[in-house]
Amino acid sequence: MTHVLTTGLVPSGPTRRGARRVLPGFGLTLGISLLFVALIILLPLSGLAFQMAQLGFPDYLNIILSERTLAAFSVTISAAALATVFNATFGLLLAWVLVRYEFPGKRLLDALVDLPFALPTAVAGIALVALYDKSGWMGMLLEGMGLKVAYTWWGIALAMIFTSVPFGVRTVQPVMESLSPDMEEAARTLGARDLQIFRHVGFPQLWPSFITGASLAFARSLGEFGAVIFIAGNMPFETEIASLLIMIRLEEYDYPAASAIAGTILGLALVILILANIAQGRAARHLNGGK
């Protein structure tokens, strides 16, 4: 037997499980993180799953495939899709302006982007109604042109756009800031025009963060409640969003139906986020030094 002198500070030989870690505190930090994830995210979701589990599959289909639910899904998803397309595009533009140019009021504009996060969504909804109602001045203006926004599908999309603006900007902005000008300059010396540089050199590098921003905006829009209900009009089959239908079912004490609709929306959001994650991983494979 050889006698090994240990100090007690340095683990002697290989640690109990797997490879030796250099950073200390892995067990503790992971443990606490998992505890909070479980308490804050998983526990409420399991409550939802529990409610859903009380439904048989035929009942679930009955609820989901009822005309009113389908109409609500269709309104919600289509408006969220428009809001996402708008915010992804507009977010890219806004991030571009904030990153690439210096102008007076730039910091104010930068701070303004976060406002939809800070503002209670109900306040946003009421403000939008005040503005787009036929007595509001945007509403009057648009009515003159024969357009109606408040209490229509367009109002829903508008409210969703308002609440998810920051996602489009804030995900792309840091990546855009970190782009080195070298690649663009190289493209320029190789004969590329501005638009070609953006399309072939700049945008591919922004693409992963662009997908992330768009998917977050979409997921958020799917579940948006406060801002939307004030401006939606809430007519069943026409301007009733899924979140409101959940609320209605809850008020009728129809918990299984509410949870079926909620679970479906949640599942959709989850699928979108997972798909975005996969797409992002693929796109980022060769960026950032292949890591």
Partner: peptide
């Protein structure tokens, strides 16, 4: 030819 080479990583 740039100092950083500025290759298109994607």
């Amino acid at each position: 030819v740039f100092q950083s080479y500025a290759l298109f990583e994607h």
